[in-house]
Amino acid sequence: MSVAAAHPRPSESKQASWIGFVASARAWLFLIVLIVGFEVWSQLSFQATFVGNMFNIRSIAVFTVAPLLLAMGQTFVIISGGIDLSVGFTMGLASVTVSNVANAITPIYGTGVGLAAGIVAAVLVSVVPGLVNGLLIARLRVPPFIGTLGMYGVARGVAYLLANGTTVPVHNDALAWMGNGSLGGIPAVVILTVVALLVLHYVLSQSRFGQYVYAVGGNRAAAVRAGINVRGVTLKIYILSAVCAGIGGVLYAGRFSAGAAQAGEPLLLDSIAAVVIGGASLFGGSGTIVGTLIGALIVAVIQYGLVFIDVEAFWQFVVVGVVIIISVLVDQSQRKGGRVDE
């Protein structure tokens, strides 16, 4: 029906889809290689299985929860071409808030109301840094790196102030159960995170909002011209990221029965690592929730695996940092290879 005048040569399109396949499969391959590597190491040095051990599986799953929550919000931010450096301390702020509020309400109204009030307060408090980030970036066109770095400082300071510079023990059994209990052998935090994962995957891949996140990251000017409310979308993205961090803070307070300003401090690196390893581009425009899940699992397996084979804990930071840099390099080389006419 149509004229083939300007078609790309078949070999070219085959090659392009092959590159695309490698890009999407790269994270899966890496995860499998890691697991096989730790399994072999474990068999050779301890004559024990690494993956066959339910305790290890559960630990890795629980370990993945907090960085994954942060990373899922971060996925939206990075696809839109931004970055959110404030998530770690927003998580800390939320963990302190849920603890303080639950402790204040529980003695008067009981455990259930105490828990609910704590969660609502923590989520509302976490909206604030997201809203401010979004307004700075969407309205005042502050570069995301700077805006969220400022918010990093503010959230950090406020969290320490609210915690009086120490950790806040939780006196609410329901919150503690949420952090440590299980349903049918599956930890409650894992179930909650899987629900969040499904919801966010749906939103990103199937809703108009999700589509606009990609459009803004791909070509902001084109999105504006198409009549998309780019400022509104940007604002929602940063609020979403902050709320994900807030939920992470609530689960942290439950798991450790304490709120701590520094709860999410090491997770900023982990969350960005998960997104980037999962195939999102720091230049914006690409990434998926499933990719981020794989990325978060990779980070967790590296960290847990290194502890399991008795490597000094601080090496985790080094390894995760190196993996981020490699992922970014791979992404960059693919951009150069992908298209010649720029």
Partner: peptide
């Protein structure tokens, strides 16, 4: 516009319907 028109990362259908999906 040659450069401002399309979101490079989206497919043809998504670009034709951008903003009116």
């Amino acid at each position: 516009y040659q450069d401002l028109a399309l979101a490079d990362n989206l497919d043809v259908g998504a670009n034709v319907f951008l903003g009116r999906e």
